[in-house]
C-alpha cells in the first residue's frame, strides 16, 4: 500500500458514496446511466471472484464486499425504487459493442489462459470502457448535474491515481502488470475531456452544459 493507491481507493469509495447520496437525497436517478452501472456490477463481480480463492487483507476484502454490495444497490435504485426518474431514452448506448470485443480480447491477451485469470482480465478491460454509456448519456442530453460531475471526477481520478501507484510500485517493488497499466491508461484517457470540462466549469461554480 502506498499513498497513491490509498488515495485512489478513497477516491473510488468517494465516487460511489457521492452517487448513492445524490440518488437518495434527490429521490431521483435522473442523468445516471443504468447501463454503466450494470457494466460496473459485471466488472466487480468478475474481478472479485477471488474473494473465494485468496485472502489478501481485511482491507482488501471489506472494500471488495462494499463495492459489490453498493453497485447492486445502485442498480436496484435505478431500475426499481426510483425507476420513474430513470431516463432510459437517453441511456441508449449499445453495450454489446463493448462486451463482445472486450470478451474476445480477454481470451486473446491475458497473463495466463486459465478461467479465473481470463475473467479477471475481462473485468480489467471492461472497467476501462464501462463509463462510456454514462459519458454518451451526458453528450446526448447535453448536460450533467453538478453532483453527477463530482461523481465522475472522483471516479476518473481513481484510475489516474492508480497510474501513479503503478509507477511508484514499478520503481519501489519491481511490480509491473502490463494489462492493468494499458487498460488504466485507456480508462484515464476517456475521462480527459470530462476533466477539462470539470476544471473549466464545475470548479468555477458552473454546471456542465454542452452546446447543442
Amino acid at each position: 500500500m502506498n499513498i497513491f493507491r490509498l488515495c485512489g481507493d478513497m477516491s473510488h469509495l468517494a465516487a460511489i458514496i457521492i452517487l448513492l447520496l445524490k440518488m437518495w437525497k434527490t429521490r431521483s436517478v435522473a442523468g445516471i446511466s443504468g447501463k454503466s452501472q450494470i457494466l460496473f456490477a459485471t466488472v466487480f463481480t468478475a474481478r472479485y471472484l477471488d474473494l473465494f480463492t485468496s485472502f489478501i487483507s481485511i482491507y482488501n476484502t471489506c472494500m471488495k464486499v462494499f463495492f459489490i454490495g453498493t453497485v447492486y444497490f445502485t442498480i436496484y435504485l435505478i431500475y426499481m425504487k426510483f425507476k420513474a426518474t430513470y431516463d432510459s431514452n437517453h441511456d441508449s448506448f449499445r453495450v454489446e459493442f463493448l462486451i463482445v470485443p472486450v470478451g474476445g480480447l480477454a481470451f486473446l491477451v491475458n497473463h495466463e489462459f486459465a478461467p479465473l485469470e481470463i475473467i479477471w482480465t475481462f473485468s480489467i478491460y471492461l472497467e476501462s470502457v464501462a463509463i462510456l454509456p454514462q459519458l454518451f448519456m451526458i453528450s446526448k442530453t447535453g448536460e450533467a448535474e453538478t453532483i453527477t460531475s463530482h461523481y465522475l471526477f472522483a471516479l476518473g481520478s481513481y484510475r489516474a491515481l492508480y497510474l501513479c501507484n503503478w509507477i511508484y510500485r514499478y520503481y519501489a517493488e519491481g511490480f509491473f502488470d502490463l494489462i492493468a497499466v494499458v487498460a488504466g491508461v485507456v480508462q484515464t484517457i476517456l475521462y480527459c475531456d470530462f476533466f477539462y470540462l470539470y476544471i473549466t466549469k464545475v470548479m468555477k461554480g458552473k454546471k456542465i452544459s454542452l452546446p447543442a
Partner: peptide, 10 residues
C-alpha cells in the same frame, strides 16, 4: 478452480 495469479489491487 485453477491456480489464480495474485491480484492484490482493487
Amino acid at each position: 478452480l485453477s491456480e489464480f495469479l495474485p491480484h492484490d489491487e482493487l
